[in-house]
């Protein structure tokens, strides 16, 4: 009886794992079949207005990169504060709040940014999209920096201090260097996550059919356009949406895997 129960339990557990893997395989195979068949070189050369995806891919990357440019330094410095400088209860509070922020509904962040960066200026603009994405990114970077710095042995800091270096020099030259790889992984994972976000962009930067690098106007976005295209009745639009989904997923997963590969190598 005990052994039968054990067997049933083990079987259930293995089947669960297979279900999980099955869903991943199902989604990836679907994307590959649907996306790959609609993929043409012309998609990368034309803009959406001519049936291509060039402007959307560039736009999505520009939004995510600019958001990273804001989010990474702010998040890292805040993480450094929590781990290295904070005294008393305050850093604990910030750590908890940023933990909560990581799971905050992204659509609400979009609405928040809308009310101060879109509504007063009378229309969607790229800046608002960048702000929304960077708000999503900051807490993730804080958490990674915080936990990666906690892995750096105290002796390294003390050695730096003993050489007479000031605290911020020790942090920048010794502690951050020691945690570099881990932080880099965290940054890449965070980047992969915000690069695939749709909800915060829906009513901040919206999307555009034309090639544009003008952040004061609605800005082309791959994810928002996938949403729009998928809802259109024509088959050609939906095929384009599948091709775009394929490109987006490859982009996100490659960045994600590269991030993981970095830490794996170090271990």
């Amino acid at each position: 009886m005990r052994l039968t129960l054990n067997k049933i339990f083990l079987a259930f557990s293995v089947i669960s794992a297979l279900i999980g893997l099955g869903f991943l395989a199902w989604i990836l195979v679907t994307l590959f079949i649907k996306g790959f068949s609609s993929l043409h070189l012309s998609l990368f050369l034309n803009d959406l207005v001519d049936g291509g995806l060039r402007n959307l891919i560039v736009g999505q990357l520009v939004l995510a990169l600019l958001a990273a440019l804001i989010g990474i330094p702010l998040g890292m410095v805040a993480g450094i504060y929590i781990r290295e400088y904070g005294r008393g209860k305050y850093p604990e509070l910030i750590r908890d709040l940023s933990d909560i922020m990581v799971s905050a509904p992204s659509i609400v962040i979009g609405a928040f940014v809308y009310s101060f960066a879109v509504a007063p200026f009378g229309g969607a603009n790229g800046f608002a999209g960048v702000i929304a994405l960077s708000i999503m990114m900051i807490p993730i970077i804080i958490n990674t920096t915080d936990s990666m710095l906690s892995l750096v042995p105290k002796e390294l800091r003390e050695a730096g201090m003993a050489l007479g270096a000031s605290k911020y020099r020790v942090i920048l030259d010794v502690v951050i260097k020691a945690a570099k790889v881990g932080i880099m992984t965290g940054i890449l994972l965070a980047f992969a996550r915000i690069a695939g976000e749709t909800a915060p962009l829906l009513f901040t930067s919206e999307t555009s059919n034309y090639f544009s690098l003008d952040l004061t106007d609605s800005f082309p976005s791959l994810t928002v356009s996938i949403y729009n295209l998928a809802n259109e009745p024509e088959k050609s639009s939906r095929d384009l949406a599948w091709a775009a989904s394929f490109i987006l997923t490859v982009m996100v997963l490659v960045i994600n895997l590269f991030g993981r590969y970095l830490t794996r190598n170090k271990k």
């Binding site: 679907t30 992969a192 996550r193 909800a199 996938i226 998928a230 996100v252 993981r260």
Partner: peptide, 24 residues
Amino acid sequence: YVGIAIELLAAIPSIIFGMWGLYY
């Protein structure tokens, strides 16, 4: 490896889940 695969499932953008969910 299974762990990495499961985490990749988590990394897939939610809009992809929507497309796949609706059509398949």
